[in-house]
Amino acid sequence: MEPGEWGAITSFRRGDVPFARAYIRDADGRRRLVEARGTSADSARRNLLKKLRERVLPASGGTLTGASTVGELAGYWLDEKAASVSDQTLNGYRDIWSRICAPHLGELLIREVRTGTLDLFFKRTAKVAPSRARSARVVCSGMFSLAVRLDLITTNPVTDARVVNRSRSRAPVRALTPGEFAAARAAIARYCGSGVDQSPKTTMGPQPSHLLEDILTVLIATGARIGEVLALRWEDLHLDTTPPTLVIDATLVVPRFKGDSLRRQNSRKGNAPALTVTLPDFALAAFRRRLDSAPTSPRSTDPVFVTTTGNWVSPSNVRRAWRAALGAELAWVTPHSMRRTVASAIRLEYGLEGAQMQLGHSSSRVTEAHYIQRTNVAPDMTSALMTFAPRGDQSHE
């Protein structure tokens, strides 16, 4: 017999229970006996045929079958995605699967998962956090689409499963006013000059120094993401050109799993192309202070922002120190607030397209929806409305 083929089916009884059995040659070449029971000889035979068919391995599916677990499908899908997505995106998928999906779906067999199974899972997850349910749906959709492609199932059960979103309005984009930014900068300056780490864990993260001040300066001078700023190397800076510029072409990937380490990903978020931005004069002082604070002359490939041990500075540790510096009064201000502040300021002077180009977005819709603070004061346009004034009122003519 070829792998996946079975021999003659025979019927027998154990006591009063009908059974059917046959030998099958599995994909590993071994010959095994398979049995099934039923309420009659015919039903036992039908049940056996079902079991035998489910043992047949699809040619394109490797070691996966309809009797494989959803956890095995997830591992296969993640291995396949590793070749087409960035490390950061892959880590996100792995995190969603292991933290949200695996506890509820991992031990189910692929053939056992129905639309109702996933619909109930998404709804229960949405009650805790709608964003988790949406993320879980993305991962499950990809996994079961792969199962369809490998002929393990005929239709994707995610297609008709719905994520019920609790109605809530999106928080408006908030950029810092010049006064609010001055207060935030002063708070960070006090923290950096105090010599006292106010955060819970004094052994982690950037200790009080000018490091946090310089990070703030580069964030507000570029509009870059915190991971992009911390991934800068000296070869990315061109401070002696006219005008001075820097190239943003990487980001730091934060470890999500035990054994992972902080590393530099040589591409921006979403594999976006490298972005060159012009630096305002006040940013040069921050970079020169970084250069002066280096214990030795840095190489071109060394990080601009570096720990005392010579490693990359973790975005998580920067956020921790940032929260300790700003306190409760300015708790709403995050490193990402600087990106919104830059976009809103540039839009006022250079328009939406200027803000889009500074942030490196492929579409102005993303910039406008997520990074531009709306202005709710309309200009004086009463002259146009005077068309509708009562005829006797000529005071504005």
Rank of each mutant, 00 (worst) to 15 (best):
G4L: 03
W6L: 07
I9R: 13
R13F: 10
V17T: 15
A20K: 06
D42T: 15
S43Y: 04
L52T: 01
V56R: 13
A59H: 06
A67S: 14
S68F: 05
A83G: 13
L90K: 01
R99V: 04
C101T: 00
H104A: 11
L109C: 02
E112I: 03
G116H: 12
K123Q: 13
K127Y: 10
A129H: 14
A129F: 11
P130G: 00
A136F: 01
S141F: 03
D151S: 15
T154N: 07
T159Q: 14
N165C: 11
S167N: 12
A171F: 03
R174Q: 09
A175I: 09
A186H: 05
P206I: 07
E213T: 14
L219Q: 03
A221T: 03
E228Y: 13
L230M: 01
A231F: 09
T241P: 02
P243R: 05
L246V: 07
D249I: 05
L252E: 02
K258P: 02
K258D: 11
Q265N: 12
P273I: 13
A283M: 07
R289A: 05
S293K: 12
S297R: 15
P315L: 01
N317L: 09
R319C: 10
R320T: 07
A321D: 01
T334G: 07
A343I: 03
I346S: 03
Q356C: 09
L359Y: 10
V366N: 02
T382F: 02
L385I: 10
F388L: 09
D393T: 06
Q394S: 14
